[in-house]
Amino acid sequence: MLERKHRKNTTDVTFVLPKDTPPGPVSVVGTFNEWRPGAHVLEPRTDGTRAVTVALAAKSTHSFRYLAAGDYWFDEAAADGHADGNNRLNT
Protein backbone atom coordinates (compact mmCIF):
# COMPACT_ATOMS: atom_id res chain seq x y z
CA MET A 1 0.00 0.00 0.00
CA LEU A 2 1.14 3.55 -0.68
CA GLU A 3 0.22 6.56 1.44
CA ARG A 4 0.90 10.06 0.09
CA LYS A 5 1.02 13.46 1.73
CA HIS A 6 1.45 16.34 -0.69
CA ARG A 7 3.51 19.28 0.49
CA LYS A 8 4.56 22.48 -1.28
CA ASN A 9 7.55 21.11 -3.23
CA THR A 10 7.61 17.47 -2.17
CA THR A 11 5.39 14.47 -1.66
CA ASP A 12 5.92 12.24 1.36
CA VAL A 13 5.33 8.69 0.14
CA THR A 14 4.90 6.00 2.79
CA PHE A 15 5.45 2.44 1.60
CA VAL A 16 3.40 0.05 3.76
CA LEU A 17 3.43 -3.76 4.02
CA PRO A 18 1.79 -6.29 6.36
CA LYS A 19 3.76 -7.29 9.46
CA ASP A 20 5.26 -10.57 8.23
CA THR A 21 4.48 -10.78 4.53
CA PRO A 22 7.07 -11.47 3.38
CA PRO A 23 8.97 -12.48 6.52
CA GLY A 24 12.22 -10.80 7.50
CA PRO A 25 13.60 -7.38 6.64
CA VAL A 26 12.28 -5.53 3.58
CA SER A 27 13.57 -2.36 1.95
CA VAL A 28 12.18 -0.24 -0.83
CA VAL A 29 14.73 0.48 -3.53
CA GLY A 30 14.41 2.66 -6.57
CA THR A 31 15.58 5.62 -8.57
CA PHE A 32 15.14 7.87 -5.51
CA ASN A 33 17.90 6.02 -3.59
CA GLU A 34 20.04 4.84 -6.51
CA TRP A 35 18.69 1.28 -6.07
CA ARG A 36 20.63 0.84 -2.80
CA PRO A 37 19.28 -2.04 -0.70
CA GLY A 38 18.96 -1.09 2.96
CA ALA A 39 18.71 2.66 2.29
CA HIS A 40 14.98 2.68 3.16
CA VAL A 41 14.10 -0.28 5.41
CA LEU A 42 10.47 -0.74 6.43
CA GLU A 43 10.06 -0.51 10.22
CA PRO A 44 7.22 -1.80 12.45
CA ARG A 45 4.31 0.57 13.20
CA THR A 46 1.91 0.44 16.14
CA ASP A 47 -0.88 -0.92 13.92
CA GLY A 48 1.19 -4.03 13.11
CA THR A 49 2.21 -3.01 9.60
CA ARG A 50 5.72 -2.09 8.46
CA ALA A 51 6.47 1.19 6.72
CA VAL A 52 9.03 3.73 5.60
CA THR A 53 8.42 7.29 4.40
CA VAL A 54 10.46 8.89 1.64
CA ALA A 55 10.22 12.58 0.67
CA LEU A 56 10.22 12.87 -3.13
CA ALA A 57 10.20 15.87 -5.41
CA ALA A 58 6.70 16.93 -6.38
CA LYS A 59 5.50 16.24 -9.91
CA SER A 60 8.12 13.59 -10.61
CA THR A 61 8.09 9.93 -11.64
CA HIS A 62 10.12 7.18 -9.98
CA SER A 63 10.73 3.48 -10.49
CA PHE A 64 10.91 1.17 -7.47
CA ARG A 65 10.55 -2.38 -6.13
CA TYR A 66 10.64 -4.07 -2.76
CA LEU A 67 13.58 -6.25 -1.76
CA ALA A 68 13.16 -8.84 1.00
CA ALA A 69 15.55 -11.27 2.64
CA GLY A 70 16.94 -13.97 0.37
CA ASP A 71 17.16 -11.61 -2.63
CA TYR A 72 13.36 -11.78 -3.06
CA TRP A 73 12.17 -8.88 -5.26
CA PHE A 74 8.46 -8.10 -5.43
CA ASP A 75 6.00 -5.49 -6.65
CA GLU A 76 3.50 -3.04 -5.17
CA ALA A 77 -0.07 -3.71 -6.30
CA ALA A 78 -1.03 -0.06 -5.66
CA ALA A 79 1.72 1.37 -7.88
CA ASP A 80 0.75 3.98 -10.47
CA GLY A 81 1.94 1.65 -13.20
CA HIS A 82 4.51 -0.92 -14.22
CA ALA A 83 7.23 -0.69 -16.87
CA ASP A 84 10.56 -2.39 -17.57
CA GLY A 85 9.95 -4.88 -14.74
CA ASN A 86 9.57 -2.12 -12.13
CA ASN A 87 6.75 -0.27 -10.37
CA ARG A 88 6.05 3.35 -11.34
CA LEU A 89 5.25 6.07 -8.84
CA ASN A 90 4.03 9.57 -9.79
CA THR A 91 4.24 12.23 -7.09
Rank of each mutant, 00 (worst) to 15 (best):
1 M>T: 14
1 M>G: 15
2 L>F: 04
3 E>Y: 11
4 R>L: 04
5 K>Q: 13
6 H>I: 06
6 H>L: 11
6 H>K: 13
7 R>Y: 11
7 R>T: 08
9 N>C: 00
9 N>V: 05
9 N>Q: 13
11 T>K: 03
12 D>A: 14
15 F>S: 04
16 V>H: 02
17 L>G: 09
17 L>T: 09
17 L>V: 08
18 P>A: 09
18 P>G: 10
19 K>V: 01
20 D>L: 10
21 T>F: 10
21 T>Q: 14
21 T>M: 11
22 P>R: 11
23 P>S: 15
24 G>D: 11
25 P>L: 04
25 P>N: 09
26 V>G: 05
26 V>S: 04
27 S>Y: 04
27 S>L: 01
27 S>C: 15
29 V>Q: 11
30 G>M: 07
30 G>R: 07
30 G>H: 02
31 T>V: 06
31 T>A: 06
31 T>E: 07
32 F>P: 03
32 F>H: 09
33 N>P: 01
33 N>F: 02
36 R>E: 14
37 P>C: 01
37 P>L: 01
39 A>Y: 03
40 H>N: 15
41 V>H: 01
41 V>C: 02
41 V>W: 01
43 E>P: 02
44 P>C: 08
44 P>W: 06
45 R>I: 00
45 R>G: 00
46 T>I: 05
48 G>C: 12
48 G>M: 12
49 T>N: 13
50 R>P: 04
50 R>E: 05
51 A>V: 09
51 A>E: 13
53 T>D: 05
53 T>C: 08
53 T>A: 06
55 A>E: 14
55 A>Y: 00
56 L>R: 07
56 L>C: 05
56 L>E: 07
58 A>S: 15
58 A>V: 00
60 S>D: 13
60 S>H: 14
60 S>M: 08
63 S>F: 12
63 S>T: 12
63 S>L: 12
64 F>P: 01
66 Y>G: 07
67 L>G: 00
68 A>E: 04
69 A>F: 00
69 A>R: 03
71 D>C: 00
71 D>H: 10
71 D>Y: 03
72 Y>H: 14
73 W>L: 08
74 F>P: 06
74 F>N: 04
74 F>E: 08
75 D>A: 13
75 D>G: 09
76 E>I: 03
76 E>Y: 01
77 A>F: 03
78 A>T: 15
78 A>H: 09
79 A>H: 00
79 A>C: 11
80 D>G: 09
80 D>T: 06
81 G>C: 08
82 H>I: 01
83 A>M: 02
84 D>Y: 09
84 D>K: 13
84 D>W: 06
85 G>A: 04
85 G>I: 08
87 N>H: 06
87 N>T: 05
87 N>M: 10
87 N>C: 15
88 R>S: 03
89 L>A: 08
90 N>F: 07
90 N>T: 13
90 N>R: 12
91 T>W: 04
